[in-house]
Design a protein around this nucleic acid. Structure first.
Length: 489
RNA sequence: GCUCCGGUAGUGUAGCCCGGCCAAUCAUACUGGCCUUUCAAGCCAGCGACUCGGGUUCGAAUCCCGGCCGGAGCACCA
């Protein structure tokens, strides 16, 4: 008999042994700032730890000084962004500080006859491997291998000459498993000054991760399914050393419509070229950019948790994230007028006056005040298809009728809302900005908008506001002009 | 070439392990309506899916086999 469960909100339960304290980790290579992709790993792992009351570790897998060279600032950025996401780590480990530990285990495995120094050139090893044959170095004695290994770490070989391999099963039906590389020689100094050129032999991910996951007492691992074969490879190390492998779950690739495919190194290059203003450019999928745009960490958490940990590759739109964020900020964001592509309009027959639109349509938070003379700005968009005789309602001000298109002129017709006929003949309500308003620039993923806004926007530094009929924006600076970062509609 | 994994509405997800309660959940998107001094929010309604073919069974989204499609690994990247 099967028992139907309640629709399970949130994450699937973890298999936890009795008395076991959950330890999980997020293990990035800090070669750039965390992105929305990283957020998945950060949120899901930390959420599980929260759920089960365990330890959340951030481990920097920074063992490649060359190809995926770590970025010094990024170490702090990860901690910063994790904390922002409500996932402050209980412990931080940096792999490049722990190379000696990996050397010790390497030596141990060599002594056990389960690792060997391979001198195969170019594609030689691949040929042996594809033929399911051992290369000549595989059967060297422990003494010889130990000797070669010592020479390796003593910097007596050039790059690409020698590599330490872990013995698996050279006849394994899956070629991906056969005798994988564990250490290689890289002479480029590590970017961290405390490491520098201390080492020339660096562990590969499968080795470093295997050792660390055990050293740090990991109970559960969640990672991308591109690392699925890692478990099979690493299990050989665990078997040799008599360890238990953590419980592993995988998730599929995640692709975000709005950003398409991107790589950290590609973004870095584009930033250096000046294509983007920096790592927090609103067009980028980094967490720094999200934060600057006013996306709340809670929205990202919900979004990631809702997505769960399926093995299917997902191709998602940020609409859901934006909807989540809108729910969080709608009640607190004050409303303002921002006129993009402003067009000047003169009103005939209107006395100067003070408009007092509410700061929020439903929440009672008071009013803003705008002095209005005989001229104002409206959006160019709203003037397209406009004809003489058209009636418009200027929001929170009065109704007008267009009397001329060039120059744009209108006459005041009524203060009363009665002129805004209900039903199908309802006239258009548009927003406007005072002639002496403040210059506003909005930086959005889809472009830059320049225009005029209410002066009081300057009081909202760092707040998320809604520019009516435009969208939610975070006020980023108010110095010479007001600069806002666009969050979403 | 060898090996592994996956395929539920436009998108994401629940259900699959343990077959019947599934004419399939929720969210988002979209459409229409209500409300409204924003193209926002809110409320109501609608739309829309089990990859295909066989098998097992009284009964299959769920189990088995095959096809098709997609993704991944076989790096001195992570």
């Amino acid at each position: 008999m099967s028992v139907k469960k309640e629709p399970d909100k949130g994450l699937k339960p973890l298999v936890v042994k009795e008395g076991e304290k959950v330890v999980m980790r997020f293990a990035p290579n800090p070669n750039g700032p965390p992105t929305l992709g990283s957020a998945r790993g950060i949120v899901i792992n930390s959420e599980y730890v929260k759920k089960y009351g365990g330890t959340f570790i951030i481990r920097f897998d920074d063992t490649d000084p060359q190809t995926k060279r770590p970025m010094l600032e990024a170490y702090d950025w990860y901690i910063e962004d994790c904390t922002w996401l409500g996932a402050a780590p209980d412990k931080v480990v940096i792999a490049s500080d722990r190379i000696q530990i990996y050397y010790d285990y390497a030596e141990k495995l060599i002594e056990m006859g389960q690792a060997y120094v391979c001198f195969c050139e170019g594609g030689d090893f691949k040929n042996y491997k594809d033929a399911k044959e051992a290369c000549p170095h595989r059967d060297e004695s422990v003494e010889v291998n130990l000797h070669h290994w010592k020479k390796m770490i003593a910097n007596e070989y050039e790059e690409k000459v020698a590599v330490l391999r872990i013995k698996t099963d050279i006849k394994h039906k899956d070629p991906a498993i056969r005798d994988f590389g564990a250490f290689r020689i890289v002479k480029m100094p590590h970017p961290r000054p405390e490491v520098g050129n201390k080492y020339v032999v660096w562990p590969l991910l499968d080795f470093e991760g295997a050792i660390e996951d055990h050293e740090l007492g990991m109970t559960h691992i969640i990672r991308g399914k591109d690392l699925m074969d890692s478990e099979t490879r690493q299990t050989y190390i665990y078997k040799y050393l008599g360890w238990d492998y953590p419980k592993t779950t995988h998730w599929g690739r995640i692709k975000i419509h709005e950003f398409g495919k991107f790589s950290t190194s590609g973004l870095r290059h584009a930033i250096e070229e000046g294509e983007y203003s920096g790592w927090d450019d609103p067009r980028l999928p980094t967490l720094r950019a999200m934060r600057r745009r006013g996306i709340k960490p809670e929205a990202i958490r919900k979004f990631m948790i809702e997505m769960g940990v399926g093995e299917t590759d997902v191709s998602i739109s940020l609409d859901t994230l934006y909807a989540e964020n809108r729910k969080l900020v709608d009640l607190t964001a004050n409303r303002y007028f921002f006129v993009w592509d402003p067009v000047e309009m003169e009103i005939q027959g209107a006395e100067p006056r003070t408009a007092t639109p509410p700061l929020h349509p439903t929440e009672d938070r008071g009013h803003r005040t705008i002095e209005v003379g005989t001229k104002m700005f409206i959006c160019k968009d709203d003037t397209e298809s406009l004809e003489v005789g058209d009636k418009l309602r200027l929001k929170d001000l009065y109704s007008i009728e267009i009397t001329s298109l060039t120059p744009l002129q209108a006459k005041h017709t009524s203060d009363s809302m009665d002129t805004v006929i209900k039903g199908e003949k309802r006239i258009r309500i548009i927003h406007w900005a005072p002639i002496d308003g403040a210059p506003v620039k909005v930086l959005a993923p889809h472009g830059e908008f320049n225009g005029i806004g209410e002066r009081q926007i300057a009081n909202e530094l760092d707040n998320l506001v809604q520019f009516e009929r435009f969208g939610f924006c975070r006020i980023d600076s108010v110095d010479h002009e007001i600069v806002a970062y666009f969050a979403h509609k």
